[in-house]
Design a protein around this nucleic acid. Structure first.
Ligand SMILES: [Mn+2]
Ligand SMILES: [Mn+2]
Ligand SMILES: [Mn+2]
Ligand SMILES: [Mn+2]
Lengths: 219, 219
DNA sequence: TTATAGACTTTGATTAATCAAAATTAAAAT
DNA sequence: ATTTTAATTTTGATTAATCAAAGTCTATAA
């Protein structure tokens, strides 16, 4: 019933509200995340409100309704299961699956999706370490702690990578910045906005604050 | 570059010209095959001509250009490889894959398609017995002989099933009307427009002329 | 040779999604 | 309390794809 555009809006809005855990998602973030002009986002969001998928307060932002959340979550599940399939079964690299899944998430029937889920053995995390919501829309709470929130010297486990850009993921893999690996912050240089880190026994290197904030960790 | 609508038009036109082997494809068939009104087909076809994908002669029909044929063939390859994947890998029934592939054929990147091809071991035919074009756009000539063109009593091998409707394919499977099986026409009753047939050692049954014409055979 | 039916085309309108640029508002800085 | 800035909304227009219904052709049938 919802068009692929609607599906994209609802998924993006849900992901923003999860990642930044905010209740009201501001229009600017929606426009940025969907790569449309602010005016487009405003007009689209008004339509979504008519369809009862969200509530919109002018100059405040947007809150998903129950049905909006449901569709958004459904899209996240689809996206992540498809990504997992592309890596596990077809052997694509984790850096090239995001755009692919962005399309496929709208094209697969529920039946095929559930077959895929079984075929893959009910995976719980996608290749970037993001939890895959259950069919009924339940998702594991993900770590809200990024590299930036860590004490110097403490060893942490990498949970997931938020940045989905191909180049960033290539860089990350090259530096072994991958889910499961152990990372330590060696130095924290506020003035230069960098952290110096070491992954497992590999050579140390530096990350800017923006990049470090995309590496989610636990432990 | 071409939109999914354009891809659908070019694929449909190519398939009609192959199936009916005619050079000029009439507008009516295009409209019917794409389930749009005749006026829509006319206006769309004019756009396609502007883009050099085909030549259109008013009240005559349409002929694909080289580039139009190339895109059409690419879509046939995609469609059939995806159908094969859905049956071979995910275990869907041959009756429920057509609509699915109709969507997916537009959503998968070339890279994923070729990975799929390798994963499946370069299959030559889809689950309905239709030849899969090579990456470079070469397709095996398919049998032009249907059950209707057979001598009574002669044993023939079923090559492919043209009718893609779910209900027909369910019926066909139930009667073992599937590629590879051996079929014999027992009786040919022009007046009732039925043929009585027997597949392998199974009980005999009747088919209307329209249905019989959808079963392509050889040998 | 006219009629006429059926295939096809034209016309005029609609819808979803988008943009650019102008207008408005609220928050922050002075 | 003003001014400035940044975020957001409004306005007006465009594009691809579609339909309904009116108009036009052309091949056959009377
Ligand atoms: Mn998407
Ligand atoms: Mn992911
Ligand atoms: Mn299609
Ligand atoms: Mn097929």
């Amino acid at each position: 019933m919802p068009s692929r555009t609607v599906e994209n809006y609802l998924k993006s809005i849900l992901m923003i509200s999860i990642n930044k855990n905010c209740v009201e998602v501001p229009m600017g973030m929606i426009a940025e995340s969907l790569k449309v002009t602010p005016g487009t986002a405003t007009s689209m969001v008004k339509n979504l409100q008519k369809e009862k998928w969200l509530n919109y307060k002018a100059r405040k932002g947007v809150t998903l309704t129950g049905s909006g959340k449901k569709i958004g979550m459904r899209m996240i599940r689809r996206h992540r299961l498809i990504e997992t399939f592309l890596v596990e079964t077809l052997g694509l690299d984790w850096s090239e699956i995001h755009e692919e899944a962005e399309e496929l998430e709208h094209s697969i029937s529920d039946k095929v999706l559930e077959k895929l889920d079984v075929f893959l053995g009910n995976p719980q995390f996608d290749p970037h370490g993001h939890p895959i919501p259950s069919k009924s829309g339940v998702i594991r709470r993900l770590s809200q702690k990024s590299l930036l929130d860590c004490k110097v010297g403490k060893k942490m486990k990498i949970e997931s990578i938020l940045d989905q850009r191909t180049e960033f993921l290539n860089f990350a893999k090259n530096k072994s910045l991958m889910p499961g690996n152990i990372i330590k912050i060696l130095k924290y240089q506020k003035i230069a906005d960098t952290v110096e880190v070491q992954v497992e026994k590999k050579p140390k290197f530096s990350l800017g604050f923006n990049s470090a904030d995309k590496i989610m960790v636990s432990g």
